[in-house]
Amino acid sequence: MSGMLAIYYREILILRKKFFRQIASMAVSPLLYLVAFGLGMGRDVRVGGHAYLEFLIPGLVAMSSMVQAFAIASEINIARFYWHIFEEFQAAPIRNIAYVTGEVLAGITRALFSTLIILVIGFFSGVTLAYNFQFWLAVLLNSFVFASLAVGLAMLVKSHSDQALLSNFFITPMAFLGGTFFPVDKMPDWARTILHFLPLTHASSAIRAAAFNEPADPFSYLLLAGLGVALFVLAFQCVNRARE
């Protein structure tokens, strides 16, 4: 427990030191998307019975929480490859599960911050949605999935550039195709089948349903929880294997 808190403390300390930079960096992409897709398309465009801006905000929450949770991988890699701080953690009397939990919690914290930023941006854009328990649960599960994936992959990559490659191949396509900007149901059957394998599709759908006070598909929550646990176990195995 104390080992996990030490790992979490270090990440939060760094987040605090770079707070305004981090907030600005978390806000810039959603703001651009909001301006480009939301305001740019006008308030008259409606999707699934809602104004496009209302449709977009939950999608941006899903996307941004994914990106920020996954960004913990970059912090881990900087610590591993540039500053060699990972050695300090490896030599400490803490269990690998404590390390993984601390880093995953740090990823979730970043994701929650980014969600709050989008909600504030949404509020100033005149969008108010239902931010109920199901909404936050879906955000939390989405963050859990991608923070766990980030820790696992950060242990597998051999350099910081490999990490960027993984982001380009997995996270960026998912950000655009996972129901963030358009309803997946409007896609052709073959594309819809593929996109339903993406965890972000389920996260967007669950977050959006909760935000609109509509009944959510419990399968999405179960899938995110199951995948999150599986990726957490994988991350634990990867930390074990990170020793030379």
């Binding site: 270090r10 300390l13 760094i14 030191k17 770079k18 610590a79 500053w83 060699h84 701080i85 050695e87 300090e88 030599a91």
Partner: peptide, 14 residues
């Protein structure tokens, strides 16, 4: 044990 590794591994942000 305490370890002073070959690489400087202080946390530069701290």
């Amino acid at each position: 044990c305490g370890l002073v590794p070959q690489n400087i591994n202080l946390d530069n942000e701290l």
